[in-house]
Write a protein that binds this DNA or RNA. Structure first.
Lengths: 128, 128
DNA sequence: TGTATAGTTAGCTTCATGGCTAACCAATTA
DNA sequence: TAATTGGTTAGCCATGAAGCTAACTATACA
């Protein structure tokens, strides 16, 4: 619902940075202020804020300022949207494997049938 | 097994580009040569090759040259490795929601118990 | 042997990213 | 009211990413 905007370009780009992945991981455990988030990182605040901003424009994070403190929280649906992409790819991949397996089974059966017709000319041979 | 090398930085960076995601999607359906892959894209070959190279160094794609044609295939395990990251985050997120829900339920019960003790002083009130 | 095909290499531009410092609000707290 | 805290703005720099053209190599086909 909220992820029409979740364009994968920005989401994946956001997640390509270890600092930002760490922020996302932290926010999975609950919301936090900017300086709480920044604390573990050895980085100037303005640099850190850029990461927050990247996360916000990707839609992964939302924030709200009250008083002088800005609180950040995760948009789980955007995260899920990205996860969906993988699941879609995996579905295609697995369908292909299934088809391939079906094909191999078919070949095998045909071979067996052929072998049954002209009985035991070549025995099963193992490839190296 | 093959994804000790699958560093998420490179994998997500690779997937942050629509051309490269399209390549991955294409390869989910089966292996292909470079020029087959390049065909749908309006892009000079050297530019396209850079994308292939990014995908290869991320581990998402492997390729092999035979004769003059280079055939590319997907490394599904690397894709799955990235998917795993999302599942881990979701697990943390959902655990938190569960705790929160448990907490809300506890509060609710306590309120009910308190209400039962001193019978019906204030009826349920709706906040605006 | 000559020509077309499939990639590759080299080198160039342009723009985005990730980091910094310095200076600047605007709420809180003393 | 003055000082501290929490964040923001502006601007600089180095690196890397994404695209291009031009020229080249090496295989396959006629």
């Amino acid at each position: 619902m909220a992820n029409q905007l979740s364009n994968l370009d920005q989401v994946f780009a956001a997640l390509a940075d270890p600092t930002r992945r760490a922020i996302v991981m932290r926010l999975c455990a609950g919301e936090a202020s900017v300086s709480e988030l920044a604390d573990p990182f050895d980085m100037a605040l303005p640099s850190f804020m850029k990461h927050i901003h990247v996360l916000e424009t990707s839609g992964l994070v939302q924030s709200e300022k009250s008083g002088r403190v800005r609180t950040c929280r995760l948009s789980a649906d955007v995260l899920v949207g990205a996860e969906d992409w993988f699941q879609q790819q995996r579905a295609v991949w697995e369908a292909r494997l299934d088809r391939f397996e079906a094909y191999v089974m078919k070949l095998k059966k045909e071979k067996e049938r052929a072998a049954a017709k002209r009985p035991s000319r070549t025995t099963k041979r193992k490839g190296s």
